Structure formats: C-alpha cells, structure tokens
Amino acid sequence: MRSKKNILQAATELFAEKGFSATSTSEIAKRAGVAEGTIFRHYKTKKDLLMAITMPTLVEGVIPFLAKEFAEEVFEQEYPDFRAFIEQLIRNRFEFARENGKLLKIYFMELMYHSELRAQFSDIFMTHVKDKFDHVIDYYKGKGELKNLPNSTIMRALITNIVGFMITRFVVMPDAEWEDEREIEFTIDYVLTGILK
C-alpha cells in the first residue's frame, strides 16, 4: 500500500506542476520510487490515476463543502444583511482552498478536458447547493437588498467572482505576495458594488 500512496503523492505533485497531459507515467514512477509497471498494477490508465486523485477530493472535500457541513456553516445561518452572507461564504471557501491548493489546481486544470469531472461537479451542485442558494437569494430579494434579476444570474455572478478569486489566489498566482484580508474585502466590495466609481 505504501507504493500506491507514493504513486498518488507523486502524481498529485506532477499534475499540479506540469498538468495531466504533460506528465508521463515514467516521471510519476521515478518520483514515486517505483517501477512504471507498478502504476499500471494499481491503475489501468493514467486517466484512472487522475480520477483516483480528483474523485476523493470531490467525495471527501467538495461534497461536504457543497452539502451538509457547508450548508450548516454558511447557508443555514442568519446574517444581518447580504454582505455578511457573502463574507462568510468567501471566508469559508478561502480556508477550504488554502488547505487543498494542489488538488484544486489539478481539478480546475482538468475540469475542461474530462467530462466525468464536469458531470460529477454539476450533479453535486444541483443536488446539494442550488436550492439552498435560491432560498438565500429569494430571502434577500424579499428584504429589498438584491435587484430583481433571475436567481441564476445572481448565482452565476457570485460563483464566477468567488471561484475566480480562489483560482487566481491558489492556482494561477499562489506564490505572489498576497494581502489576503484586503483581497477578501476587495472581492466582497466589487461583488456587491461593481468596479465603477
């Protein structure tokens, strides 16, 4: 089992550094300290190895993030206003991204190329999050805090900006000098008010 753990660790590192397509199984074997054939004893194809890395992240990380724990931590709380809700949403996901940076990098790099990953992500979102998100949006529309835009438009604007921030921070520019607290505040501000003066 140690060789399997070494293979997963080596593949995670190399996929994060070079991407799935640019990484060969011989490179993974070399970094893992095993023969290349050992990889194929555990995984039929390189894509099976990718799924072994990303699917547990979905099952153990993203599903709790999108489901019960996430709902309890974010969606099932009371907030004085919509800004407080957005702040909690961003801070909650920021900590998740900080703890899972390499896996998120692999996941987002490969999401566009593997339909299995897209289907899994879509299913998780539709099953565990969409209704709760709709409820929150309807609540703050009712309080007069949000424009009367379609819920899907509001949701898309929020998700695009928040996920974009996380990808830039932890995937595209993880080694830049970030002032995380300021960036979180800036993100909240422009999500809610835009970027025009």
Rank of each mutant, 00 (worst) to 15 (best):
P56D: 11
A119T: 08
K197W: 13
I195D: 07
Q120K: 06
F94M: 07
F165P: 06
L146T: 00
V171F: 00
K46M: 06
I53H: 10
I28L: 05
E72S: 10
E73F: 00
Y139I: 04
E60I: 07
I154Q: 13
F82Y: 15
E72N: 10
W178F: 05
T38I: 03
E73H: 02
D175Y: 01
M166L: 15
L49N: 04
A32V: 05
E60G: 13
E27L: 00
D81F: 07
T38M: 05
T45H: 08
I86K: 06
I86D: 10
T127L: 14
Y113S: 02
P64R: 00
F133G: 03
T23D: 05
V34W: 09
W178S: 04
G33K: 01
H114N: 14
E87S: 09
F85I: 04
D138T: 11
G194C: 06
A22E: 11
G101T: 07
D48F: 06
E185N: 10
E87M: 06
T12V: 03
I137G: 11
I167W: 04
F170Q: 01
I39E: 03
E13F: 00
A32D: 03
E76H: 15
F75W: 03
F170N: 00
G61W: 12
M155L: 06
N161I: 11
A119L: 07
K46C: 08
Y190C: 05
E36Y: 02
R182N: 08
H114F: 13
H128K: 14
K68V: 01
F108V: 03
A22L: 09
G61M: 09
A52N: 12
F82L: 02
E73Q: 07
S152G: 11
I63R: 11
R169Q: 05
T12A: 07
R182V: 14
E73K: 01
S21A: 14
A32R: 00
I184F: 10
R182C: 09
S3N: 12
M173K: 13
I184P: 12
M112N: 10
V74K: 01
V129P: 13
D131R: 01
L192S: 09
S21D: 08
A11P: 09
D180G: 06
K143F: 05
T45L: 10
E73G: 01
K44E: 15
Y79G: 09
E99D: 08
E110K: 06
F65I: 02
V129Q: 15
S122G: 11
M126S: 13
E72A: 07
L66S: 12
Y190V: 03
G61I: 05
Q120T: 12
A32M: 08
S115T: 10
F133A: 13
N100Y: 03
V74E: 01
F75M: 03
R156N: 14
F70T: 09
I28V: 14
E13L: 02
K68S: 12
H135K: 13
E87R: 10
K4R: 14
E27T: 08
L8P: 14
E145M: 03
L49T: 03
G37D: 12
S21M: 04
I86P: 07
I7A: 03
A32S: 00
F170P: 04
G101P: 14
F15L: 04
R98P: 04
T193A: 15
L103A: 02
G19I: 02
Y190D: 04
A84F: 14
